[in-house]
Structures are given as structure tokens and as C-alpha cells.
Design a binder for these strands. Structure first.
Lengths: 384, 384
DNA sequence: TTGTAAGCGTTATCAT
DNA sequence: ATGATAACGCTTACAA
């Protein structure tokens, strides 16, 4: 026997389907009616069909959260926050993973027209006009978490990345580090571009020259390691190229634990650093002596990748190199040493975005809002 | 103007709704018909309503993956694997997070009757009869990833935890460690119980006595730290209680970096260890001298938590204490030192489970299958 | 307060 | 091959 429908319940209770529906939806009915219906429902184990219901009422009471990479720990914080406000409002949250491609995201946004959910929360990594167009034309309300053009006329909640990078740089300067490198993610992404600019501005503001800027292929641990290798090989390592005692020589018993990939390179490549693909170093004349003593990383995964490579060549964090990450994800506290990280308000952004989405579902005519969440710095042990 | 329906397309194309439906579903039609319909569809930007469709055909072409804790990195591996086979089969994967409570999971399983999806993939942390009952009675096919009673008559894909623990112990013994402690998660959970038994058996097989068994409140990083503190305080630390030179005294420059919580306890509590809640230590007579030189952890998060506390009291991994985790999640390679971990086949289990689910959707009468995925050990640097 | 019936957007059956 | 029409399971006017 198949699943009971409202008709079956009505028959079993000896009432009309309309009455069953009313009781189920808490509309006025006599006590006896309620009683009879509830008994029948319990007896048959009836559960209303959400599809039929939503087909009729035009709402699914589901909200979709689209994330590009479930593997990034920054999303778990966000998901938890979103889930909280969404379920408090009586909605179900469903999470779907889009790939890293813009096309995947466009397909997802377009697909919302199929009626899967009443609204969409999306944080695009890469953005182009087609994506913005599909978002604007989406059948259901969309709020985007991330920095997209204001003219888009869509609700957004974004972080203040430049300010975040500034906090990182200020903290480092505060702790006496001025030879600062930057390990970024791909700059053809929204966060990558924002952070690149933020870093340039922040250094500028402090009258500093960037020691090196490396761009990882992706915002992942693996990409972070690869890029860090480049950073170390690029000739702007922390060892001074002439005399001076640096921390590196004071790290006994740590640097010998593993073959140090960075140090097994052919010697004398220092000068070639700036011509390496993916690595941008200032002209030798303006480059500070002694390479970097601190690295700002565009996210925590990259930072952890970097710390692994630093350890591999016997450099200590924070003594030799201070490292600060961004996102302040769970990984930051789990890493060793625990990572000083810029909290870009991932949870807060999720919460606000969810609220915006709910508000727009209530009233689709309200003017688009653009919320920006301010960053803060969580100091842990990866900086002095 | 609202979303176009199939009727609108029919009108625009000057044909019947039935014809539109046919063209859209690839049923036979003249070239001209196809042409006209497709033009109208493109013109109006028509997208079929999935709810109406699934109401009619009885299938949603969506599959639900329920996870208890999105924060656990073991799930990202699993999700990726599941997503791959599911989308290859033309289904959409939606992920929903249940809480840690059995009640949440029961609610979710029951809720499937609402028609959200065609099948459910669930890995319950805690299991009771009610949950199994709801799974058995679920309106849609369910496959459970995890170890549940065979009599349940449901498709399952499980890991071989005991074998996994055995691999860990064998590896440690192989590397000369015999004073092995166990950091487990809650034993009222499925994996917790399985791993507890596995540890006892594994030690038995090697003629070893457990040095200590600690049970964390949860399979999380935070719980791992708390429990590790207990492990260290319980009096079965690696320092010998009488004479002898241990590794702890050979760790210069590492142990002073942070106030060592474990060592600030009131002295002379060693004997009280076995009476501490949550800590089970063998009777003093049978306890090996010198405490543990290795710890097996029930998952990677617990292991990382432990490593933090070990570092805090100046113990080196793996020199002083070898640590092995379980799950071989992304965190294992990201942790420092990289964690030797038992690969319980998380991805493989996800893949097989998804296949089982698809097969059962095809044919609901097939006999329930119980697949077990064998573990392997990934050796990294947290063991000598 | 309760029942009857229309209709949400599809697909599928039946004629044509 | 195409068109009219009856479901799918529910909610909601409208009538009684």
C-alpha cells in the first residue's frame, strides 16, 4: 500500500478533505473535528506532500545555500549561522555545491526557476556579466554574499577585505615586522582581487614596499603549498644575502627534521626571483635587505600551506616569519601554531544575508540593501 | 509578469500543451513542431516547474545527503564522492545538516515522506530503535553509511573500525611503541562503540595492556583538547614516576612557549588518575612504567586537539608521543606534524552508498546489501 | 463550522 | 503526430 493522501485521511475520518486541510493548518474547527482528523492522521501515519502543497501555495519553505567549495572551512561557520536564522524562521535549508566555474553557478541560478526553493544565498568566487544577469533575472530572491558591483541592484552582504588586510598589516607593523610578503589566491576571483588591492593600499599607507606577492592557483591548502615553494624559491627568502644574524640560524633541532626543498635549489638564484611566473617582486634596488619576516595570506588554507613549507625549510613561526591568515575559520585555531587570522565576519555575513533573504521574500519591492560587515583581528600564536 | 508556464509556451507556439511537453521530453514529433516549440521556449525563457513535474511523475530526481556535523572534515571527502556519482546519474544532490540528536535524525527521515527527494543517504552518529524503525518505514529508499544491526534489513556501507584500530596499533608496535593510550569519542555513538571494542581487541591481540582510555564528549577539536587535558592530568603521562630519562626532558625550547596547563595541577595526583570521571586506567600493578608513548585517536579532530595539548606541555610528536588519527581527512595532511591516520574509506563509502541508493531506486525489491570497506593506513609524520 | 469544487503546472491516456 | 483532458495531492474560494 502506498503513501496515504489527504483524501485517505478524509475518508478514514469521515470528513471532507477541506476539513482535514484546515485542521492541519490550524484553521478554526470544532474540537471534535480536530480530534477525528488527528486520530486518522496518526493512524495512517499521514505526512503531507510538500511538492503538492508548494505547487498550490507557491512557496516551498526551502532556501538554498550554494557554496563553491565545501572543503573550505570558512563555509562551515557560515552554514551554521545561516542554518540558525533560516530554521528559526520556519524554513528548511538545503545546501548545494557548485563547482568553481562561473558556468556552474549560472546554471544553478537559472535552475532556481524550477521551483526548488523560495530563495537563494550564493557567494560567487568568480563573477561575470552573465552571472549577474542571471541573478538579476532569477525567479526567486537572491542575496549574494560577496563583493559585486553596486549597480547590480541586488541585496549583498560583503566583507571589507581591504580593511581586513590593513588590520593584518597594522598588527604586523605593530609587532615590529615590516618586510611583509603577500600570499594571495587567484586574482581573477572576487576575493582575490579585493585582497590584492587591499594589500597594496595597506602597505602604501604604512610607507612600506611589498617584499613579494605570490598568487596561488586556488584558495586551497595544496595551492598554498605550491605557491609557498615559489615564494621561498623566488629569492626573497628571509635569509639576508649578506652577513647579519637572522633568526634562521638560531633554530636548532627544528630545521633538520626533513629534507628542506627550498634550500636544495641551485644556488645563486636570488636575482632571478622577480622574473619567475606568478611572483612579483619589486626591483632589487627598492627591495629591503633580508627578505620577508612576515606573510599575509589571503585565507587560512593558504596560510596553513605556507606554514608547512616554512617548517620544511626550518623556519620558525612566528620567530623567523610571522604568518597571518584570513577568515578566522576553525582551521585557524586547529593549526599549529594557532593562526592569527583576520575575522572577516563569515558567520555574521551568513546571518545578515539570511535575514536579508527572508526580508525580501516577505517584500520583494523593498530597495536593495548592501551590507558590509567589518573585520576584526583574532590574534593567535603565529604572530609575535 | 510572472513565470511562463507550459500553457504560455503552447499559446506562443500555437500548439497544444501536450505537444510542448512531448518536445521537451524528447518524444517523437515533427521537425517543425520541435522547431516551433523550441523557439517559443527560448523566447519566453521557459523553465519547467520541477514541483509540478515531480508531483505528476512521482520522482524528484533529487537525493538527500544528511550529515550530522558539517564541521567534520571527514564529510567533505564523502560529499565530494557522493556528489560525483549522484550527478553522473542525473540526480541533484542536496545536503542537509541534522543536529547531533537522534531525534533530529528521526525527524529528517520521517520528513522524507514529504517528497523532498527520491532517496536518502544518512550516516547516523547515534542509533536507537526508533531511528531504525523510521528508516525501515521511510517512504523513500535509504542507505545508511555506518554500522547498524544486520537485522535492520537496510542497505548499509560501513567501515571496518576494529580493523582500522588494529592497523594503527600494529603500526605503532612496529615502530617500537607499546605503551599505547586511546582517545575515543563518546561511546554511546556508533563509531565510538566500535572503536572502543576495536582498541581493546587490538591490544589484546598484541598482548598489550592499555595505558589509558579517555572518552571525549564529542568528536570535535574542542572536545579533543579537553579530554587530552584529562589524559595528561590523569597521572598516566609519559614522565616516569620514578627516575629514568624520558623524552620530555630532551625537548629544549619547545616546552616553555606557553603556560603548560597539564603541569600546573596540584602535585601528587598521579595515583588518583583511575578514579577520574571519563578516564579508565588499569590497576597500578598492571600499568606499565612510564605512561604512554603513543596515542590512538578515534578521529582526526581529536588527534589534532591532542597534539595541541601535547605541544602545550612540551611533548614532541612523534619523538615523545606518537599520534595516530582516524578518517584520514584533509585535516590530517594539513595538521602539523602531518598526521598518520587510518583511512576508513570515507570517499569509497560515499561512492558505494550512492551506488547502492541508485540501484535501490531502480529496483526496490532487491535484497538489502551490506558492504564493508576495508581500511588502510596513511603514514605521515606524527609517528616515528 | 463544514463541504464542494476549482486549480497550481505538469505528464500521460485517449481519441483523432 | 497531435490535441483535448484527466489526474498528481494539496489549498482555498465559495456555498451551504
Amino acid at each position: 500500500m502506498s503513501r496515504p493522501t489527504i483524501a485517505g485521511v478524509a475518508r478514514a475520518a469521515g470528513v471532507s478533505v477541506a476539513s482535514v486541510s484546515r485542521v492541519l493548518n490550524g484553521l478554526p474547527a470544532t474540537d471534535e473535528m480536530v480530534e477525528r482528523v488527528q486520530r486518522a492522521v496518526a493512524e495512517l501515519g499521514y505526512v503531507p506532500d510538500a511538492r503538492a502543497r508548494s505547487l498550490k501555495v507557491g512557496r516551498t519553505f526551502q532556501l538554498t545555500l550554494a557554496v563553491a567549495d565545501i572543503g573550505n572551512p570558512v563555509y562551515v561557520t557560515r552554514m551554521r549561522a545561516v542554518e540558525e536564522v533560516v530554521s528559526a524562521a520556519g524554513y528548511r535549508l538545503v545546501v548545494t555545491a557548485t563547482g568553481p566555474e562561473v558556468a556552474d553557478e549560472i546554471a544553478l541560478v537559472r535552475g532556481m526557476a524550477r521551483g526548488y526553493a523560495d530563495g537563494l544565498l550564493i557567494s560567487p568566487i568568480r563573477v561575470n556579466d552573465d552571472l549577474m544577469k542571471s541573478i538579476r533575472e532569477c525567479e526567486v530572491p537572491v542575496v549574494v554574499v560577496g563583493d559585486v558591483a553596486a549597480k547590480a541592484g541586488v541585496d549583498t552582504v560583503r566583507a571589507n577585505s581591504p580593511k581586513g588586510v590593513l588590520l593584518a598589516v597594522e598588527h604586523l607593523v605593530d609587532r615590529g615586522r615590516t618586510r611583509i610578503a603577500f600570499l594571495n589566491g587567484p586574482t581573477d576571483t572576487v576575493p582575490g582581487a579585493a585582497r590584492a588591492k587591499g594589500f597594496a593600499d595597506a602597505l602604501n599607507e604604512h610607507g612600506l614596499e611589498p617584499v613579494a606577492v605570490v598568487e596561488a592557483n586556488d584558495f586551497t591548502f595544496a595551492a598554498g603549498r605550491t605557491a609557498s615553494l615559489e615564494l621561498l624559491k623566488s629569492g626573497v627568502g628571509p635569509e639576508p644575502r649578506s652577513g647579519g644574524t637572522t633568526a634562521a640560524s638560531r633554530a636548532p633541532g627544528v630545521d633538520a627534521e626533513r629534507g628542506a626543498p627550498g634550500s636544495s635549489r641551485p644556488g645563486g638564484r636570488a636575482a632571478a626571483g622577480s622574473s619567475r611566473p606568478g611572483v612579483t617582486a619589486p626591483a632589487p634596488s627598492s627591495r629591503p635587505k633580508g627578505g620577508f619576516d612576515a606573510v599575509v595570506c589571503a585565507n587560512d588554507l593558504l596560510a596553513v600551506g605556507l606554514m608547512h613549507e616554512l617548517a620544511a625549510v626550518g623556519l620558525r613561526v612566528p620567530e623567523d616569519v610571522a604568518v597571518v591568515g584570513m577568515d578566522d575559520s576553525e582551521l585557524a585555531e586547529q593549526s599549529f601554531p594557532p593562526l592569527t587570522s583576520v575575522n572577516l565576519g563569515s558567520a555574521e555575513r551568513g546571518r545578515r544575508a539570511a535575514e536579508l533573504l527572508l526580508a525580501r521574500i516577505e517584500d520583494n519591492d523593498r530597495a536593495p540593501r548592501r551590507i558590509v560587515v567589518q573585520p576584526s583581528l583574532t590574534v593567535r600564536r603565529s604572530t609575535p
